[in-house]
Write a protein that binds this DNA or RNA. Structure first.
Ligand code: MN
Ligand code: MN
Ligand code: ZN
Ligand code: ZN
Lengths: 143, 143
DNA sequence: CGTTATTATGACATCCACTTTCAACTGGAG
DNA sequence: CTCCAGTTGAAAGTGGATGTCATAATAACG
């Protein structure tokens, strides 16, 4: 699905008249082969190890492009850094965030999603997106 | 319940050996008689209208105290500003945030909360707190 | 009451995570 | 190959949060 996301991005770029560059290729590769939920700084440092000539601003701008293209999602877990995670076509999930070790697990729960829609509907509210994050101690940290 | 919160705060202050000041009185009054979900800046401007001599830093520090005392909760809705809302003893609710007009509605749903606990439990995760926010168009903005 | 140790205040400086600017540099259509 | 729109990276700019510090206010004590 790395292939698939690359195609999505390429299509997005040409459709918008944007150019393919060495930097964007490097950043995309690095992003797709990274842990999920990486901050800009983390990705930048990782890239800089092999490509010292790529600037922070370029990583920053390219991640925004990924988000616009629909292959990345921007998130805030309250640690003061914006993080980007991979997303696939039509995928959605929520998060369990460990307040001790910082690990992030993902989950999906169709029933919760349905109840959200009901709550919203009962107030005439139309949901565009939502965020559900459970903060606490992960299995490891409880031991 | 304005009375009750004032008492909670007073008790907290004396228990910590902190002093009562005119500024803190003014800020507490203003906070308790405000809309919920006010940003520091908003509260500061509101206060400054009647008390031009109260500084931003004091409002900022006092709101932190409210949070520590348990009468306020700090929140982030992704607009880049920290907001504080009133909280009562043992109260909890989640939010519907309008992406057009910025209005914020509150809701509670016991079933959702229960499902969250189940999801967490099934992974050995212990929830300390959570946030659930539904973003979209409020009733008014849909018309 | 004054005295005094302690805490609080507010103007200002600093931090920090982006975000924008801009001159030099491509990518790729023609 | 030419040429221009798009791109890059260093550096400057932003905006909100947080730290600093000299001055002022609180409240306990004698
Ligand atoms: Mn995720
Ligand atoms: Mn609320
Ligand atoms: Zn953990
Ligand atoms: Zn609205």
């Amino acid at each position: 699905m790395k292939r698939a996301k690359k195609k999505v991005f390429t299509d997005f770029m040409s459709q918008r008249g944007l150019k393919s560059t060495k930097q964007r290729d490097v950043i995309l590769d690095s992003f797709l082969s990274s842990d999920r939920h990486l901050s800009i700084e983390e990705l930048y440092l990782k890239i800089r190890a092999k490509h010292p000539n790529i600037g922070y601003a370029t990583v920053y701008r390219t991640l925004k492009l990924f988000a616009e293209a629909g292959i990345a999602r921007e998130m805030q877990f309250g640690d003061g850094q914006t993080r980007y995670e991979h997303v696939g076509e039509g995928e959605h999930h929520d998060h369990l965030v460990c307040t001790r070790c910082g690990s992030i697990e993902e989950f999906e729960n169709e029933t919760i999603e349905k109840l959200q829609t009901e709550v919203a509907a009962s107030r005439g509210f139309l949901i565009e997106r939502h965020r559900l994050e459970l903060y606490g101690l992960c299995g490891n940290c409880r031991k």
